[in-house]
C-alpha cells in the first residue's frame, strides 16, 4: 500500500492499468446498454419503466462506493500524510457528486410514473440528498483556503464525519418505513431479480466501476502533472 504512495510508482502503474480499464468499461457499457434497452424483458408490473433501474441502481451503488473510497483516502491522508491520498480524495469528489446527481435525477424520473411523485422526504431519498450536499461541501471546503494543505485537512475531516451517512443510506430502507423499496440484491430468497434483468444490471454496474477507476486515474495523473509544472515554474522564477 505504502509503495503506491510514491507518485512515480503510481504514474507507472496508472499508465499500465488505464488502457485496460477504459477498454473494458467501454465493452461493459456497450453490452450493458444493449441488454438494458433492447434485450431484456419488460417488468411484470412496471413494464418498460423498469429500464431506468439499469442506470439508477449502478449510479446509486457508485455514489456510496465513491464516498467510501473518499473517506478511506481522507483517513489515510490524515493518519499517514500521504499526499497521493489527498489527491485521490479530491479527484473522487466531483465524480461521486455526479453519480449522486444521476441517482437523484433518474430516481425522480422513475418515481413519477411508479409511485406517483417526483420526490418524497422519506429516509432513503433524504439521506441520499444529504450525500449529494456532503460531496458539494467537501469540494467547496478543500478549495476554500489559501493554503491548500489546510483545505485538504478540513475536507478530510468533513469526509470522515460524513461517512456516518453511508450506512444510514444503505440501511434506511430496513430501519424505517420508507416509500423506497428495500434492496433486491442482498436478499437470498427468490424471487428478487430475474436473471434476464440481473445480467444487464451487473454488466452496467461493472461498467460504472471500471469507468470510475479510469476517470480517477486520469484525474489523479492530471493533478500530478499540474503539481510538477508548478514546481518547475517555482524553480525557474526562484
Amino acid at each position: 500500500m505504502h509503495k503506491f504512495a510514491n507518485p512515480a510508482q503510481f504514474t507507472r502503474l496508472a499508465n499500465r492499468v488505464l488502457p485496460w480499464t477504459s477498454f473494458f468499461a467501454a465493452i461493459c457499457f456497450i453490452f450493458g446498454l444493449y441488454f438494458s434497452i433492447f434485450a431484456s424483458p419488460p417488468d411484470y408490473q412496471q413494464g418498460e419503466t423498469v429500464r431506468i433501474m439499469y442506470v439508477h441502481v449502478p449510479a446509486a451503488w457508485m455514489s456510496l462506493f465513491t464516498y467510501t473510497l473518499m473517506a478511506v483516502a481522507s483517513a489515510s491522508f490524515l493518519i499517514w500524510k500521504h499526499s497521493l491520498a489527498d489527491i485521490a480524495a479530491r479527484a473522487l469528489a466531483p465524480v461521486g457528486a455526479s453519480f449522486t446527481a444521476i441517482t437523484l435525477i433518474t430516481g425522480a424520473l422513475w418515481g413519477q410514473p411508479m409511485w406517483g411523485t417526483w420526490w418524497v422526504w422519506d429516509a432513503r431519498l433524504t439521506s441520499v440528498l444529504i450525500l449529494f450536499f456532503l460531496y458539494l461541501g467537501y469540494m467547496t471546503l478543500v478549495n476554500a483556503f489559501e493554503d491548500s494543505e489546510k483545505g485538504s485537512k478540513a475536507g478530510a475531516v468533513l469526509a470522515l464525519i460524513g461517512f456516518v451517512n453511508i450506512p444510514i443510506i444503505k440501511f434506511s430502507v430496513d430501519w424505517w418505513n420508507t416509500l423506497h423499496q428495500p434492496a433486491s440484491l442482498s436478499r437470498l430468497d427468490a424471487p428478487a431479480i430475474d436473471p434476464s434483468m440481473l445480467v444487464p444490471l451487473l454488466l452496467m454496474a461493472l461498467g460504472f466501476k471500471l469507468f470510475l477507476i479510469t476517470i480517477l486515474i486520469i484525474r489523479m495523473r492530471t493533478t500530478l502533472i499540474e503539481k510538477r509544472l508548478q514546481a518547475k515554474q517555482l524553480l525557474k522564477s526562484g
Binding site: P41, P42, D43, Y44, Q45, Q46, V50, M53, M114, W115, G116, T117, V120, L179, Q181, P182, A183, S184, R187, A190, P191, A192, I193, D194, S196, M197
Partner: peptide
C-alpha cells in the same frame, strides 16, 4: 388527500411471475 404506490423489490418478466404463481412458489 394523496395516494402513492409503493412497489416491491421484485423484478421479473411477466411469464416468470405467472409461472411462479402457478407453481405456488410465490
Amino acid at each position: 388527500k394523496t395516494i402513492l404506490a409503493k412497489h416491491d423489490e421484485n423484478y421479473m418478466p411477466k411469464e416468470v411471475a405467472e409461472s411462479l404463481r402457478k407453481t405456488g412458489k410465490w
